[in-house]
């Protein structure tokens, strides 16, 4: 059974000390305008281009620079949907969700509860569903992140996405990316889940419109497709 983890590795303890010192970013970082999605857009979002523009080299949290107010920021590289993305001047407290949505262009994961109770921000981290709202961006370095956008194979829908469309397993759609990610993780591990197993796998995701019944059907349809290789 896939489970949601809040800490992907054991680097968190190291970062906590930094976080304790963290205050606000320096003026440079705030005024550079590089912290916005538009910047990433402008430079094509590649690691090389970003490093060149910011004058920084690829680095990790251990080589983080000090701002004038003592806050430690770092340039990090995240692997998202198979692509390396350089993100400059990341604060220790910045979440993976914040980086995905506000500094890169991955808005599929949604901010809802922002404290790991609803699953709307679910992404895959090394194949396991996790809550992006509760993972620090720095902690996500060195891991393979897959968002709902990354489940597409070119223009082709993932079998789980296909099944969601067919079964009408969505209404407003705000929780849907999180459910799709959780079901994708489930069927990757278990291509013949019982209804009970489906419910357990989805117990970390909340929906307010009440689509659960349809989502269960979609999960079983998707599992059948994966099982039968169709």
């Amino acid at each position: 059974m896939p489970e949601h983890e809040s800490t992907p590795d054991d680097t968190r303890a190291d970062l906590e000390e930094e976080q304790a010192d963290a205050r606000e970013p320096d003026e440079d970082g705030a005024a550079s305008g590089m912290s916005r999605r538009s910047f990433i857009k402008g430079v094509g979002g590649t690691a090389v281009a970003t490093a060149a523009m910011s004058g920084a080299t690829e680095t990790d949290a251990a080589e983080a620079s000090d701002g004038p107010d003592g806050v430690r920021v770092a340039n990090i590289t995240l692997s998202i949907n198979g692509e390396a993305h350089a993100v400059s001047r990341v604060e220790p407290r910045t979440t993976l969700l914040d980086v995905l949505r506000n500094r890169l262009e991955y808005t599929g994961a949604k901010p809802v509860c922002e404290r790991a109770s609803c699953g709307a921000c679910s992404v895959l981290l090394d194949g396991k569903p996790v809550y992006a709202c509760s993972i620090l961006a720095m902690d996500a370095e060195g891991h393979e992140i897959v968002t709902v956008e990354g489940l597409l194979d070119g223009d082709s829908l993932h079998p789980v996405q296909e099944a969601f469309v067919e079964e009408d397993a969505l209404m407003c759609g705000f929780c849907t990316p999180g459910f799709v990610v959780s079901v994708a993780a489930l069927v990757a591990e278990n291509d013949d889940p019982t209804l009970d197993e489906v419910k357990k796998a989805l117990s970390g995701n909340l929906c307010r419109c009440g689509t659960y019944t349809r989502v269960f059907a979609a999960a079983q349809t998707a599992a059948r497709r994966v099982r039968e290789g169709t």
């Binding site: 949505r101 956008e149 829908l157």
Partner: peptide, 19 residues
Amino acid sequence: AVPKVTGKAEFSYDVLPKD
């Protein structure tokens, strides 16, 4: 349904104009 299951549907919360 397709934009909603692929994360491509742009919700009001997803809109982030330049700057």
